[in-house]
Design a protein around this nucleic acid. Structure first.
Lengths: 164, 164
DNA sequence: GGAGATTGTAATGCTATACAACAATCATCG
DNA sequence: CGATGATTGTTGTATAGCATTACAATCTCC
């Protein structure tokens, strides 16, 4: 991989993703023209919405993503999950442990590959996933409340291009 | 805090696997329609660019931001810096320690307030800030390489609205 | 002058990762 | 078939970036 990077700022967990308010009297210099900085601020707002939507469930973005992915792709391996999340396999394992520990997912042996597990949502996990999807979707809509439908679509498309 | 080490990373920061590739054969379900998820992926790409731009300097996004802010606002307090970064005061202190330890910034007593420090870039810090701004700006442009100037502007504006 | 707020700090802890090393298993190919 | 190498999950270790709490020094305001 590429170079190293320390660690992302607060991507995942976080008690209170304090939103970043513009501090009056401060000159932001070049920051105001950087796509990266604008992205960071927008994402902080997004985290904020996310935590609001999932408060009380102990859910983090990666956990939510995992629930959705398991729901839509029954039987995925931990390695595939790691790839989707963009994290190391060991991380995917801990994440899976967490889900399994709460009886939201389970590991089933696979006939075709003795090394890998197949990951599945439990009934409880599926129910939670559905509930969270509802909440997150609603909150996500609120995130883009200041945008028209067309603007929202445009934003999604632009972001996709940036993410390549 | 050792010095920097090149290690790729993710999120906000840059941490993690440099980029989240779309995994073939995986159904992303609702994720594809969420603004929050699109933001996350775009930001991961942004982090990647950032780390590429600052490789070898041990710089992270918050550190870069601090350098820029100190440069444009000589004499700011640590509390103000914390507010700009959206982190706790204790975190701003550690960040400042790091900068001071590398002789990039210095704390000067303030005549008007005996409790607070005034933070300033050293000559070295100013030089580094200038160099990094150049690099980050260039890399940020690359981030939006797939966008026309108008699209880039539109994206910045939309992100700003989302961030509120 | 005193109550209360603010600033920087120290100490502690948690969380999310990463990385390296391993055993079990699979795949490939001679 | 058998050996070599890759892949999967796992464990163990390390780190970085915060947050929280508690404090002393200092400022503000009545």
């Amino acid at each position: 991989m590429s170079t190293s990077r320390p660690s992302p700022a607060r991507t995942s967990r976080g008690p209170r993703p304090a939103s970043i308010a513009r501090v009056p009297g401060i000159d932001y210099d070049v920051l105001d023209t950087l796509l990266g900085y604008a992205l960071r601020r927008a994402q902080i707002a997004a985290f904020d919405q996310f935590y609001r939507a999932t408060a009380g469930y102990g859910i983090t973005p990666p956990r939510f993503t995992a629930l959705v992915i398991l729901g839509a792709n029954p039987g995925v391996s931990q390695t595939a999950l790691a790839a989707v999340l963009g994290i190391a396999r060991s991380g995917a394992m801990q994440l899976t442990d967490w889900l399994v520990g709460r009886k939201l997912a389970e590991r089933r042996a696979r006939a075709d590959d003795g090394r890998a597990w197949g990951l599945y949502l439990t009934r409880r996990g599926a129910a939670l996933a559905a509930e969270l999807k509802r909440r997150v979707r609603a909150q996500d809509a609120r995130l883009g409340a200041r945008l028209t439908a067309a603007e929202r679509r445009a934003l999604l498309r632009l972001l996709d291009r940036v993410a390549e």
